[in-house]
Design a protein around this nucleic acid. Structure first.
Length: 669
RNA sequence: GCGCCCUUAGCUCAGUUGGAUAGAGCGUCUGGCUACGAACCAGAAGGUCGGGAGUUCGAAUCUCUCAGGGCGCGCCA
């Protein structure tokens, strides 16, 4: 609603400037006045135009206000200060539309969106860093779907890499387990935890004697080769760990549609197809001298001497004749001198497939059925005939931490070099910073800290050292903590009700915690902060909804149908939304009207934290309102109906935005 | 050395395209439960927005520079 009004306002201003001053303004800046009494929108445009029109801002503001004419939904324009134009909306009209939940349809861009997230190495338990990735990715998916987009969720599985090889080495050479023994372990609960410890031991074993690395090389080679006992064991381990990851993420209500695996990138020869095209386009060049002699190389992203458009396209078109030699340090090896392809090369092939540019496809098998009956598919060489159509999408978002920015940019540059500039432009590296531990948290986990480490604001987790907080452990701790509160507050509830309430609160706390920080901020994890249910937390926002629901329950009304069943007249809206008290309540209405506006901002900036902040602010405004205005005891029936309508609308919008963050609200808390 | 990111209240962080007196949570202090349940609310204290220069009517926000911190830069993934 808010978003719709804003764009209509911007359009009117643009029209006015065009017909009055023959000016074309690309983006009309619209902001919010510091106080709701000033209006809902503020236009600083007169300042911007002062120089251009060589008139004082106030004069321009006067001309705009006098000449802009009526705008639907807008009450009036006022000049404030040196030239601000404050805009007041027709409160009653807007409120009536909101109460009726009449959201104007927004235009949805065509084409499917692919979001890749999680992509956890299937060799050990998921940890808090993976949780940030999955929660960011899953929330972004929900935001896109909220905005009407069709989305495919993919989770890339590197099942043939060194990390899986390391755990295979652990089972076969440190523990000397048979295939049968490994199978038995893999079927036991929390096999991923077992691998977590084993992986750390293998890393130590390598440290003890570098000779041991040869064992890794041999195992890795066998895995990549396929069709042998070691490869079969690697597959059973990685598949079992992968299932555990899916179970862990399902606890947070995070699901995937398709799991492309590296083994199929290899066995279906995706790389061969990509390699041919990359050579033809001159993206890859064969190095004949220096340290990378015998390799196929590419210019590392961000190292080009000139980045201007014309020279870039000239380079792409005319091949390598004008290409200056890439200096050794700017070279990125894509194919090694022994003929094997590296990680970036496989990623290029995978991304060509994502955009439907490779000319090959995976085989597909049903892999995992969620409790809600949704099927998650996995790649295979020879799959089922009937399967959904994956890939071939219009836009992609890769939720991958900031450390991989350069590799991601290299993939984008490869696409550009292949002549797929449009695809490259619709490739977004959804970059975020890592989750580290506070020194205090590290100490709690029994990690020995140097004096230097103690002085740091955070310490990086390390899978190799087995140092970190496992996702399932954190969830268990959150649920236990929430359960204690629920037990003491609601002894009357059944065991099952208390368990599900605690789980909802725990998930709300965790998801909000991971979303409240903006992406470039390193999260220094601490149990005390993460286990908090007060202040700026998920449970605070859930509690606001519970309170709203309680009002309806105690009053004997149904919150979902209340607005439709007993509509407030436009006259009454006008009456109760006027004056200082009306201003106060209107602030809550206007915040509740911003859902799609904020969602749009989050998508445009790939920043879900804005939604978390907004949710908290809306909950906070509601809590203040809740204290200021007793509702059930209100004697004036008309006013009571208005106040209940206010609560119903806020509750509805809060539940919507929480759902977009993957947070549900318990019946009581 | 090159590239990317960060530096805002005691602590942890917001501040989206430059805009009206720089915000929140936690912590500290003072108040508020006869309940639409206090997982809450009201109030107080707390900031030369890392330093400097520039652009602008206007800068936490843009540019340059200096300082401090992080990450990346492998024939690993």
């Amino acid at each position: 609603m808010y978003r719709h009004l804003e764009s209509r306002l911007a359009e009117s201003v643009r029209d006015f400037l065009r017909r009055t001053y023959q000016l074309e303004i690309a983006a009309v800046v619209i902001e919010q006045p510091p106080k709701i009494e000033f209006g809902e929108y503020a236009l600083p445009i007169a300042f911007e135009l002062a120089r251009k029109l060589r008139k004082p801002p106030r004069k321009i503001a006067e001309e705009i206000v006098a000449g802009i004419g009526p705008v639907a939904g807008i009450e009036k324009f006022e000049i404030a200060g040196a030239g601000y134009i404050n805009v007041r909306v027709k409160r009653a009209e807007i409120a009536a539309a909101l109460a009726a939940d009449q959201a104007p349809a927004a235009a949805v861009p065509p084409g499917k969106v692919l979001v890749e997230h999680s992509s956890i190495n299937p060799n050990k338990a998921a940890h808090i860093g993976h949780l940030r990735n999955a929660i960011l990715g899953d929330t972004f998916v929900r935001l896109l779907r909220f905005a009407g987009r069709e989305v495919d969720i993919q989770n890339y599985i590197d099942n043939t890499g060194v990390q899986v090889a390391d755990v295979v080495v652990g089972f076969l050479y440190l523990e000397e387990k048979s295939r049968g023994q490994i199978e038995a372990l893999a079927a036991a609960p929390r096999f991923d935890f077992y691998c977590w410890d084993l992986y750390a031991r293998v890393s130590q074993w390598y440290e003890q004697d570098k000779q041991n690395l040869q064992t890794r090389a041999a195992v890795l080679h066998a895995i990549e080769e396929g069709n042998n006992e070691i490869a079969a064991i690697a597959d059973l381990i990685s598949t079992a760990v992968l299932k555990r990851h899916l179970e862990t993420m399902d606890r947070l209500d995070i699901e995937y549609d398709f799991l492309p695996r590296e083994s199929e990138i290899l066995h279906l020869h995706f790389w061969d197809a990509a390699f041919t095209k990359l050579k033809e386009a001159g993206v890859l060049t064969y190095e004949t001298e220096g340290k990378n002699k015998g390799c196929w190389i590419m210019r590392r992203a961000g190292t080009a001497l000139t980045t201007e458009g014309p020279s870039a396209s000239l380079r792409a078109g005319s091949g390598d004749t004008e290409e200056t030699k890439i200096s050794e340090e700017d070279q990125k090896v894509i194919v090694r001198s022994n003929g094997t392809v590296g990680y970036v090369g496989k990623d290029i092939a995978y991304h060509m497939w994502k955009f439907g540019l490779l000319g090959r496809d995976f085989g597909y098998l049903k892999f995992f059925r969620y409790p809600n009956q949704h099927d998650c598919w996995i790649s295979t060489t020879d799959g089922e005939k009937e399967h959904p159509h994956f890939g071939d999408v219009a836009e992609i978002y890769n939720v991958i931490d900031a450390r991989q920015a350069e590799a991601q940019n290299t993939v984008v540059e490869a696409l550009r070099g292949l002549g797929h500039g449009e695809a490259a432009d619709r490739y977004t590296h959804f970059s975020y910073e890592m989750v580290a531990l506070t020194p205090r948290c590290a100490a709690e986990l029994g990690y020995d800290l140097s004096e230097e480490d103690k002085a740091r604001s955070w310490i990086e987790v390390s899978g190799r050292k087995g140092f970190g907080v496992k996702a399932d452990d954190l969830l268990d701790a959150l649920i236990a903590s929430a359960r204690k509160e629920v037990d003491s507050r609601h002894p009357e509830l059944s065991e099952a009700e208390r368990a599900s309430t605690a789980a909802q609160i725990a998930i709300g706390a965790l998801r909000y915690f991971m979303l409240k920080y903006t992406k470039p901020s390193v999260i220094a994890f601490d149990f005390e902060d993460a286990l908090s249910f007060e202040g700026e937390t998920g449970p605070y926002t859930q509690y606001a909804v519970v309170r709203a629901t309680n009002i309806f329950r105690k009053g004997g009304f149904d919150p979902d149908s209340f607005c439709a069943a007993s509509p407030v007249s436009t006259e009454d809206f006008a009456k109760y939304l006027a004056g200082p008290e009306g201003d106060e309540i209107w602030g809550l209405w206007i915040a509740a009207a911003k859902t799609s506006y904020v969602v749009g901002q989050c998508i445009a900036t790939t920043e879900p934290a804005y939604l978390a902040k907004h949710t908290f602010q809306l909950a906070q405004l509601f809590n203040t309102f809740y204290h200021r205005f007793p509702i059930l005891s209100e004697a004036d029936e008309g006013r009571k109906k208005f106040l209940l309508t206010t609560v119903a609308v806020v509750r509805r919008e809060l539940m919507r935005i929480l759902a977009a963050m993957g947070i549900t609200v318990p019946a009581v808390m």
